[in-house]
């Protein structure tokens, strides 16, 4: 059996508001092995919150509660903020949607990668420079020397996202959380970025949590998929069987997509059953 990297049990994310407490994530449980786990759902389904809650990155007044969030058997919720800082980046990395906001605009890309590398490893400047070049080559950047000297605004979206991935992989984390990493990119670039991520995850035996709203993309790219609705997991299935999903919500989402190969005069509209948000969360544990 696959060894478990991450074990999340009964995760809740709550936000107190004037109208009462709003539960963004409601009792979600899942495990992550050395696999590509997709989390899909619409905006407001709690998928991004789940990813952030694992790293305890929910901003106050939001509250994260869970029976446990275990990384290699150690509960992250018991850790102090200082210990958490070592987990973030070092053991679990996160790639965000828009690279523009994740890179420092007034530092060259090379300096940023080198800084990130030396933060985690004892290395001389020249060693780090060599390592940074290697990293950029690993994410299929053609002339890495030029990119090292460039500033983030000179990069296209796809290039920026590759650089982000390179930086996130420097400390050799066990888990990579990617929150809509390709949504801001054009379709042709999307594929390349995904391929790079896939290659790296496989080579290093990492666990990947891939958060996306795009069902087809997840079906293509992941091993296992959690489908979230209103803060809960409504269905868990193998990615290649996503198109045979059973839950009416998943079916509704799939049917509402226009398809080139199957033209229809009208698209199916999802009619939401209030029961879906009442039903208990399905466990995504193995």
């Amino acid at each position: 059996m696959m060894d478990t990297l991450l074990d999340v049990e009964n995760l809740w994310v709550r936000f107190p508001t004037r109208q009462g407490v709003f539960d963004a994530v409601r009792g979600v449980s899942f495990t992550l092995g050395r696999e590509r786990l997709g989390i899909v759902g619409e905006s407001g389904s709690g998928k991004s919150m789940t990813g952030r809650a694992i790293l305890r990155l929910i901003r106050s007044p939001g509250i994260v509660e869970a029976d446990h969030i275990k990384l290699d058997g150690v509960d992250l919720l018991q850790k102090s903020e200082k210990e958490m800082r070592e987990v973030r980046g070092e053991r679990i990395s996160m790639v965000m949607q828009d690279p523009k906001f994740s890179l420092n605009p007034v530092m060259t890309i090379g300096d940023q990668i080198i800084e990130a590398y030396r933060l985690h490893n004892k290395a001389s400047k020249s060693e780090a420079w060599g390592k940074a070049l290697e990293m950029l080559e690993a994410v299929s950047i053609r002339n890495p020397e030029r990119v090292m000297r460039a500033y983030p605004h000179e990069m296209s979206g796809g290039m920026g996202q590759r650089i982000m991935i390179a930086m996130m992989l420097i400390p050799n984390p066990e888990i990579l959380i990617a929150d809509e990493p390709t949504s801001a990119l054009d379709v042709s670039v999307q594929r390349q970025v995904l391929d790079i991520m896939d290659k790296l995850v496989k080579e290093r035996g990492m666990g990947l949590i891939f958060i996306s709203h795009d069902l087809n993309l997840v079906a293509d790219f992941c091993d296992r998929v959690l489908i979230m609705y209103a803060g809960r997991i409504v269905e868990v299935c193998d990615a290649d069987k996503l198109h045979d999903a059973q839950h009416p919500y998943t079916r509704g989402l799939l049917n509402s997509l226009p398809r080139l190969d199957a033209p229809r005069a009208r698209l199916d509209v999802l009619s939401r059953d209030p029961e879906w948000s009442e039903a208990p969360s399905v466990s995504g544990r193995i």
């Binding site: 619409e42 905006s43 054009d186 709203h213 069902l215 509402s256 997509l257 009208r266 199916d268 509209v269």
Partner: peptide, 28 residues
């Protein structure tokens, strides 16, 4: 979201038929 997209696309198709509209649509 995709489910909302379906509603809006259906609405646009209906309106085009009802009002005899011409569409020029940009999309990726």
């Amino acid at each position: 979201d995709v489910s909302v997209q379906a509603e809006i696309l259906n609405l646009l198709a209906d309106l085009r038929q009802e009002h005899g509209l011409t569409y020029l649509m940009v999309s990726h």
